[in-house]
């Protein structure tokens, strides 16, 4: 947004860390600068990966009273691109570089009613929003979706803080979220045009909500979401990119992006947001042996189905297999998927 968003890189120190759920590490960073992180903001953090360094974005769960300590929570993805592993290795006293809190997902004050939807680690973007709505005395519901309680960070604290306003949807307790029901409930509400929804979570959940939201005819501008482009319909796997015009063929490792691989092979690419929003890194798909896992929010559903283009910063190519093949142990010997593209 057009708020002051100068990055403000600085050295920060880890002052606390520890697990808060299965695979989720809480990390408290202390900065010398005093600045409250508004709900919805994130820190960009420089993570060391294989000798180099890259930037990852993590939502700020909360800021301490004195404005110096920001709490993050990081999910260690098994197919991590390296960032989450780096974050999980951090110990008290370690120093790293981080920005000041950056805001791309502001909570608007003044809606008649709010629905917050968090899936898995997406809860990190919702904790501060829900707290602020509670303090403002706003009318809100926090829907928190997870596979098992053990994998849902902060669940106990949130239950205490929000009581009946928290709705935990836990797959293995048979309380899974029925997206259609949730959105219908919003659409049938007397206040429906004035209800704002904020969500953060895996792309399957967000796509389902978005699709139902638009089918129901609710105003799309009332549905806000943040994605760092880091979740897809399939687990990441290695695939091959070919650019015949440039004579390039290169493999994209599971923990690397197609954009990085193309640049690594020596081709110059244009890009900006790195989270599948702006569309600057689009490439033309000339041929496909496999299927595209579109992880961006730039292309429409029709465009994604047509698969003539893809966002190189977040989207991937996979060779989906049926579950019986996978369980029979043949997946390891599968050939990598291949995409043939052209670039600008």
């Amino acid at each position: 947004m057009t708020a002051p968003n100068s990055m403000g890189w600085q050295a920060v120190r880890v002052v606390a860390c520890g697990p808060v759920a299965d695979g989720i590490q809480r990390i408290v960073l202390e900065s010398s600068r005093v600045e409250r992180a508004a709900p919805g903001s994130h820190l960009d953090v420089e993570v060391a990966i294989e000798g180099g360094s890259e930037v990852r974005s993590y939502s700020v769960v909360n800021t301490s009273e004195d404005g110096r300590r920001h709490t993050l929570a990081v999910h260690r993805a098994p197919q991590s691109r390296g960032g989450s592993e780096f974050m999980h290795r951090l110990r008290v006293g370690d120093e790293l570089n981080a920005t000041r809190p950056l805001q791309n997902f502001p909570l608007r004050v003044g809606a008649a009613r709010y629905t917050l939807i968090a899936g898995g680690i997406g809860i990190t973007a919702m904790v501060a929003m829900a707290s602020m709505l509670r303090r403002l005395g706003a009318d809100y519901t926090l829907v928190y979706v997870g596979r098992t309680r053990a994998r849902m960070a902060f669940l106990a604290e949130l239950e205490l803080e929000h009581g009946d306003r928290l709705r935990a949807c836990v797959d293995d307790e048979d309380t899974s979220l029925n997206v259609a029901q949730l959105v219908d409930q919003i659409a049938n509400d007397d206040l429906s045009p004035a209800i704002e929804a904020y969500m953060c979570g895996p792309i399957r959940l967000m796509d389902a909500v978005r699709r139902k939201w638009s089918d129901t005819g609710l105003p799309l501008t009332n549905l806000r979401f943040e994605t760092f482009g880091n979740s897809g319909w399939f687990d990441p796997e290695e695939f091959i990119v070919r650019i015949p015009r440039l004579g390039i063929e290169t493999a994209v490792a599971p923990d690397s992006s197609m954009l990085e691989a193309i640049q690594g092979a020596g081709a110059e690419m244009m890009f900006d947001c790195l989270k599948g929003e702006c569309g600057l890194c689009e490439v033309k798909v000339l041929g496909l042996d496999g299927c595209i896992d579109h992880r961006d929010v730039f292309f429409s559903e029709e465009q994604k189905n047509a698969s003539r283009k893809m966002c190189a910063c977040v989207s991937r190519v996979v060779r989906p297999v049926s579950s019986d093949v996978e369980t029979s142990g043949q997946s390891a010997s599968r050939e990598s998927a291949i995409v043939t593209i052209d670039i600008t």
Binding site: M1, T2, A3, N104, F105, P106, R108, V109, G110, L220, R224, F225, E226, T227, C273, E277, C278, G279, V297, F298, F299, S300, E302, Q303
Partner: peptide
């Protein structure tokens, strides 16, 4: 010139 709207796109609206 695009079919979607970037979810980050907004300008501050003041009370």
């Amino acid at each position: 010139a695009q079919e979607t709207i970037n979810p980050s796109a907004m300008v501050p609206s003041f009370p």
